[in-house]
Design a binder for these strands. Structure first.
Lengths: 209, 209
DNA sequence: GTAAGTTGCCTAAAACCTGTAGGCAAATGA
DNA sequence: TCATTTGCCTACAGGTTTTAGGCAACTTAC
């Protein structure tokens, strides 16, 4: 019988496309086998298991996002860079919701460390060079940007902004403006507490619900 | 034979607990049946199907989060309210990762409109009363806060901050500080573009990757 | 060109999850 | 007590995951 020409790369690519069409959750070894018109068991020579397949799709998505971001950042700095970076993030998620969901897959530490997620974080840090932040504040700012971009896009994709005005794109622009303003006027860190002093701001809510 | 005393409520509650133990993804009708030491088919008299079960867990989580937030907000305003609200959000997610994941389930519009998610959004808006924002900017600010809180917590839970200093709790505090500063110095909206003018800032990246 | 070795896809089968249909027994209530 | 409702059951059909082992199609070496 003719061979289908399966490879891990082709499976990953097809899996990514399938994810964008029907959602990352629906990407299954069976569905992929149907797509290649091949028996399910055949795929197990190319990917270890279902989780391996999903991980490969996640890594592909992270790679693509980092590539887009790198291209968008080239030659830009300051607010221009921040805006370009933010838009790449949102545009990618909207164009490729399945891959974007894949990129959110929790990777085991070694895989994550070897992924393009690291490049992404480095680029976020590079953007901050256009702002005047103390070294000790940079990680906080990186996490703020990462969290905000991811959170906003994630809420938008899940339909959270669908039924209220204004359109999500308008808020997005204003939010990037606001983050730019925030980075230019980053609040001073509070004085470090004396070593033996009680914590200055106890958690306000740590009870079990 | 003795009856197990199943009800939709008990199933939902047990499902929520199971989600916190093994992850929302792993909550299945079968697993729940095992928990009650009952045959799988028996559950289908109480919940319509697997999706119905998950939706009920999501609604429970949204309800609990809104209750916690309401309690934390009582008697507070300004930065105090912002901090309390933010901490409720993060603390709930850390204490109940499975329920938190459930709360992210995409609900159909009617279900979402009837859920406690609405209350949550109203509380966010209430917090903004402590700041001096133009009416037209409030929705943007609500979306910024929602996105940032959700995004940060989501990244933290998925382990994104595990392998870098400082601890996630430290950045969290600084980020809430920064958001407070931002809300107190919200940047002016740019002048509205003339009706027939070209868009002032074309998207920087809308190509297909 | 052909024999040997490798690779690729196959069949078969076990285990688990979802969901439907119909049945019997326990609870309820007149 | 008898009829009805309710709750959990058995049985079954269909789908996904994963392993084991087999044969045919490629590749390579002589």
């Amino acid at each position: 019988m003719a061979r289908a020409g399966l490879t891990p790369q082709r499976l990953t690519q097809a899996g990514a496309e399938l994810a964008d069409e029907v959602g990352f959750e629906q990407v299954t070894v069976s569905a992929l086998a149907r797509h290649f018109d091949v028996k399910v068991a055949s795929l197990y020579s190319h990917v270890k298991n279902s989780h391996d397949l999903k991980t490969r799709i996640a890594l592909l998505a992270l790679e693509e996002m980092a590539d887009c971001a790198a291209e968008a950042l080239a030659g830009r700095s300051g607010k221009d860079a921040l805006t370009a970076f933010a838009n790449v993030y949102r545009d990618y998620a909207r164009a490729h919701p399945g891959r974007y969901a894949a990129a959110q897959l929790r990777l085991d530490p070694e895989t994550a460390a070897a992924s393009a997620g690291v490049r992404h974080a480095q680029m976020t840090r590079a953007i901050l060079r256009g702002y005047d932040l103390a070294e000790s504040e940079q990680t906080h700012a990186v996490r703020l940007l990462g969290g905000t971009f991811h959170g906003y896009v994630s809420l938008e994709l899940s339909g959270g902004f669908d039924h209220s005005a204004p359109p999500a794109a308008v808020s997005w622009t204003r939010i990037v403006d606001a983050l730019d303003a925030l980075l230019r006027n980053w609040p001073a860190a509070p004085a470090a507490p004396a070593p033996s002093a009680a914590p200055s701001a106890p958690a306000q809510n740590d009870r079990e619900i």
